[in-house]
Nucleic acid binder design. Structure first.
Lengths: 163, 163
DNA sequence: CTCGATATGTTATATTATATCAACAGTTGA
DNA sequence: TCAACTGTTGATATAATATAACATATCGAG
């Protein structure tokens, strides 16, 4: 299985946005224009973005600008409904790009390349992750909604460094 | 197996410090007075500390004070030789309290309690962690020196919340 | 419409982290 | 012994990330 950086095309973005709308509605929450705008920028971007980078991008693409403060609040909202994830090791944020609308939040594994700083949220290690969670929970600790961030080197960077 | 917050007693601290000295020496590096001082504070403390908290504690316990800048540098050093770990999800730092002098850095799992913010570095899930790493590496990604941070609720806090 | 709740605007400030250059200490080798 | 080199720390400035607090605006239910 090949390792590729996730980039979603326009059709996919629209699909995810629609699902996001539906999800919020079903929760009795509002995916407002600004919230959707922020989510769109995250979806359009391959690398994770800091709140301030996100603010800049947002403001370049609109004529009703937003403040970083609001972006933080919006990110908090998006995270709370699992539409975006925070990458702690980088203090940056990504959209959840899972196309089936059900990113496996409880078990998701995020690979963080130390060299190119790109990120891949992978599903193919579900089983192993599940085992780890079970082992952890058997110690009495309740692992909640965890995304495992694994630092390392992606395929491409490894190839470059090997040269 | 019970979940307990790691606290090392004085004897254990001294033991770890001695090992740290030896480790640095064998690497041709110096565990200077300040570096050792910072490590000691971390070892004496159960909760993870921010660089600035660490600075304050240090300066309260000495008459040759230190600057936060230096603490950052020292933390970087301690991390580079695996005597301390950074908790990304909290932007704080802990000492590696493994008594056998060989914290399993490549596979270590850190439980972070969202409620009391205390931290437990556990060894008992080595096998499961190893499997996960293998699964990840089979995707072509080289996981490097990872500590997995798992957010959740520790035993004690869970009990409190259940009341 | 209007009231309450939610969302956003606005300003200020806290917290975390890095950059830069100078001073000093310890080691090495002539 | 002394000069040169390397690594460590001091000192100051500033950048980057994040939260607090309060005001205003907007949405939706009744």
């Amino acid at each position: 299985m090949d390792y590729v950086v996730i980039a979603v095309n326009k059709t996919q973005r629209n699909f995810i946005l629609k699902q996001a709308q539906a999800k919020c509605q079903s929760l009795g929450l509002r995916l407002t224009e600004k919230r959707q705008g922020v989510l769109e920028i995250l979806l359009q971007t391959v690398e994770p973005l800091s709140a301030y980078e996100l603010t800049d991008k947002y403001n370049k693409s609109t004529n009703s600008p937003i403040l970083a403060m609001s972006v933080y609040r919006i990110l908090e909202f998006l995270e709370s409904v699992n539409l975006a994830h925070r990458i702690h090791s980088a203090n940056k944020y990504i959209a959840c790009k899972s196309l089936d609308g059900a990113c496996h939040h409880h078990l998701s594994v995020i690979l963080v390349c130390k060299s190119c700083h790109q990120i891949e949220e992978i599903d193919s290690v579900q089983e192993a992750a599940k085992h780890l969670f079970k082992a952890v929970e058997s110690t009495g600790f309740s692992a909640a909604n965890a995304r495992l961030e694994l630092p390392g080197l992606c395929n491409l960077c490894k190839a470059k460094l090997d040269k």
